[in-house]
Computed example of a mutant assay.
Amino acid sequence: MRKTANEQTKQALALVLLVALTVAAIAGPTGLLAWAENDEVLEQRKARIAILIEERDALRNRVELLDPNGADPDLVSELIREDLGVLHPDEIVVTLDDD
């Protein structure tokens, strides 16, 4: 029993479609190979987010220390000295209580 040319064409198209879907499932933008890359990018972004959270928390603390109703005198002194250009990078500031 010989297949007609029309049936062979249909089978060839079905085979091509099946191969294309298989290739897309493996190497496509959402395929198996992309999953490993996406996992790596996700881990890098999680690490970056952790760094940004630490920076945000440090800035939040600094803002709280500069609250106009109760600014930290040590931080205010440091900022003023830095703005005036009299604070050096290797300088260590030691404060003494007036008690």
Rank of each mutant, 00 (worst) to 15 (best):
S77N: 05
E64K: 10
L32R: 09
T95K: 15
E64M: 07
K10C: 06
V86I: 03
V93S: 11
L32P: 03
D39G: 05
M1T: 10
A34Y: 00
V86G: 01
T30W: 10
G85Q: 07
V76Q: 03
V19M: 12
V63L: 15
A12G: 05
A24G: 06
T30D: 12
L33R: 04
K46D: 08
G70A: 12
G70H: 14
N61V: 08
N61S: 11
A27C: 04
D98W: 00
R45Y: 04
T4E: 11
E55Y: 04
I49K: 08
E82Y: 15
T9C: 07
V93M: 09
V63G: 02
P29W: 05
R56Y: 12
L79K: 00
D97E: 15
S77V: 14
E64R: 09
A58N: 07
L42V: 05
N69T: 13
D83Y: 15
I49W: 06
H88F: 12
T9W: 13
K46T: 14
V93A: 07
D83N: 12
L15W: 15
G85M: 00
G28N: 01
V41I: 04
A25S: 13
P68F: 03
G85T: 02
L75N: 04
T22A: 12
V86K: 02
L65G: 02
D67R: 11
V94E: 07
G85S: 10
T30H: 11
A58Q: 14
N69E: 14
E54A: 08
L65I: 13
G31K: 00
A12N: 04
V19G: 06
N38H: 07
I49N: 04
D72H: 01
A25I: 13
L65H: 04
L17C: 06
P68D: 00
I92R: 06
A25G: 09
T22R: 10
G85H: 02
L66G: 00
E64L: 14
K10A: 14
E82H: 13
E40S: 12
Q11R: 13
L65P: 01
A47E: 04
L33W: 12
S77T: 15
A12P: 02
V94A: 06
W35D: 09
I53H: 09
A58F: 07
L59K: 10
D90G: 05
M1D: 05
D39T: 10
N69D: 14
R48I: 05
L75K: 00
T4A: 06
K10R: 08
S77I: 12
L15P: 01
L79G: 00
L52E: 12
L66C: 00
V23T: 11
L32T: 07
G31C: 02
L18P: 02
A14T: 08
D57W: 03
I49F: 09
R48D: 07
N6F: 15
T4C: 05
A47S: 04
A50I: 03
E43C: 11
